[in-house]
Design a protein around this nucleic acid. Structure first.
Lengths: 192, 192
DNA sequence: GTCTATAGTTGGATAGAC
DNA sequence: GTCTATCCAACTATAGAC
């Protein structure tokens, strides 16, 4: 339709993300990205001002998708039900085209430090955890909420099941993530 | 007693680890390590052949401590009880002087890739997960086992509780980790 | 929109004096 | 055991032609 100028920008994002996931952010050079794309470094600089800008664009895309999920969550009335469906929708993102970005974030936290506070994604993350935590002050609940997301990310990583092949990794990941946010035989506020 | 030559080697390890945790492995240069120590880069090279060797030495120390834990675990007869105590002993390591190393590993997985297969620590890790998994083929159990360790690492990271101050983070981490390895209202083999 | 060429910086590592 | 001095490789980023 309208904007069919060039998909080079998106191809750069895709190739860069592939390499970031494979080898990590710091170990991936712009030369490598350019080589795999069949262009030169200078070409990359036409589309992105810096290496960090490539990452920013990746995070922005995820932030946009999370916004939709959070918008839905905000207008729910039943908190418990919303929490569960929220996990399901995040699972869909991880299983879908955002799995690699989230794996990249998880595995390259020192690199992410630069973007924390500068990129809108991290406010979204905070809101996500706030909703999952359901206003609980109980620290164990907080920790379980964070772990639920880790479960989705780890459980959907192909590398994770390298030894023990599994037919539906996404299903396993979701199962464990849901356990973590929905108390079963656990009382919310009970400590020790 | 016997070997009181110089503690420089250990001071290098300590300072390097501090910086690796603070800023990540790749972002930390040997110049920085030397500066904080008040020596020059060349001095570092007397004690360690390469930057990677510094990391190796850190991993070796952890591997040694894990060996003791695993040796104990191997000679237990009750698998369920051993599993729980195994988590408690790992929790002690994370709360003790090995917390930083484990946080470093968790946060710098691309850097760890180089050591996987070359450093004995990773065989120990595999054995740990095998015991925690208790021979279960159920993938969800495998995932929960891995998450239990993540719970200990995340829950003991000072940074993690920055927003919500908690009096005893280690206790919370242990609580959640134990839930993950000891089924409560969950049947081991039940799928879906 | 992509190229060549290159500037400018930083990092890991070594040689050799002390 | 620690230093000065230096080498070399690699990377990000820019200038300017096409």
């Amino acid at each position: 339709m309208a904007g069919r100028r060039s998909d080079t920008r998106e191809r750069i994002q895709q190739v860069a993300l592939d390499l970031f996931v494979e080898q990590g952010y710091e170990k991936t050079s712009l030369r490598e990205i350019a080589e795999r794309l069949g262009v030169t470094k200078a070409a990359l600089y036409y589309h992105f001002r810096t290496k960090e800008d490539i990452v920013s664009s990746l995070l922005d895309d995820l932030a946009e998708s999370m916004d939709e999920v959070l918008a839905w969550a905000r207008e729910q009335e039943d908190p418990a039900g919303a929490r569960e469906e929220l996990i399901r929708r995040m699972a869909a993102l991880v299983e879908g085209r955002f799995g690699p970005v989230m794996r990249f974030m998880q595995d390259n936290q020192p690199a992410m430090k630069e973007f924390r506070g500068r990129n809108p994604l991290f406010e979204r993350m905070q809101e996500l955890f706030k909703i999952i935590g359901a206003g609980e002050r109980d620290p164990a609940t907080q920790l379980r909420g964070r772990l639920a997301l880790v479960a989705l990310i780890m459980g959907n990583a192909p590398h994770f099941w390298a030894d023990t092949p599994v037919s539906e990794p996404g299903k396993v990941a979701l199962e464990v993530a849901l356990e973590l946010v929905s108390p079963r035989g656990r009382t919310a506020g009970e400590a020790t």
